[in-house]
Simulated scan of single mutants.
Amino acid sequence: MADNRYSSYARTPDGFGGKGLLVTPGATDLGINVKGVICTTAGDITIVPWDNLDGETITFTAVPAFFIPPYRVRRVTAATATVYTIEN
């Protein structure tokens, strides 16, 4: 692996992610290291923002590829788009 010239910089909530994983929508929280999610294909996505209760979902329909919901996402409950995490 190539040398990471940015390894000495602090990872902050508003900085770039250092890791990304494919999301399987469902009833499981994504984890505390997830800063957000990105849809890499067009479609629909339903999320639970970090401070919302389990049933308080927000649905975005017909989003374009590379859409990033404007929330810190705790859970992706449904998606027709391909979704990846943005993590520290």
Results as ranks from 00 to 15, higher is better:
3 D>Q: 11
3 D>M: 09
4 N>R: 11
5 R>K: 14
6 Y>W: 14
6 Y>D: 15
7 S>L: 13
8 S>A: 13
9 Y>M: 14
10 A>I: 10
12 T>V: 15
16 F>M: 10
16 F>W: 07
16 F>Q: 08
17 G>A: 09
18 G>R: 11
18 G>I: 10
18 G>K: 06
19 K>V: 09
19 K>N: 13
20 G>R: 14
20 G>H: 14
21 L>W: 06
22 L>Q: 13
25 P>Q: 01
26 G>S: 08
27 A>T: 14
27 A>D: 12
27 A>N: 13
27 A>C: 01
29 D>P: 07
30 L>C: 06
33 N>H: 11
33 N>C: 05
34 V>M: 01
37 V>G: 10
39 C>D: 00
39 C>M: 09
39 C>A: 15
40 T>P: 00
40 T>Y: 04
41 T>W: 03
41 T>E: 03
41 T>H: 01
43 G>Q: 02
45 I>N: 06
45 I>K: 07
45 I>R: 08
47 I>S: 03
47 I>K: 07
49 P>S: 06
51 D>Q: 14
54 D>M: 10
55 G>Y: 01
56 E>Q: 15
56 E>S: 13
57 T>I: 09
57 T>K: 10
60 F>V: 08
60 F>M: 09
61 T>L: 06
63 V>L: 09
63 V>H: 02
63 V>I: 15
65 A>R: 05
66 F>C: 09
67 F>S: 04
68 I>S: 05
68 I>C: 14
68 I>W: 00
69 P>I: 03
69 P>K: 09
70 P>D: 07
71 Y>A: 12
72 R>M: 05
73 V>I: 15
74 R>M: 02
75 R>V: 03
76 V>D: 00
76 V>M: 02
76 V>H: 01
76 V>G: 04
77 T>V: 15
77 T>C: 04
77 T>M: 04
78 A>K: 01
80 T>A: 06
81 A>D: 00
82 T>Y: 03
83 V>L: 05
84 Y>I: 10
84 Y>T: 03
84 Y>G: 02
86 I>N: 06
86 I>Y: 01
87 E>C: 11
88 N>Y: 12
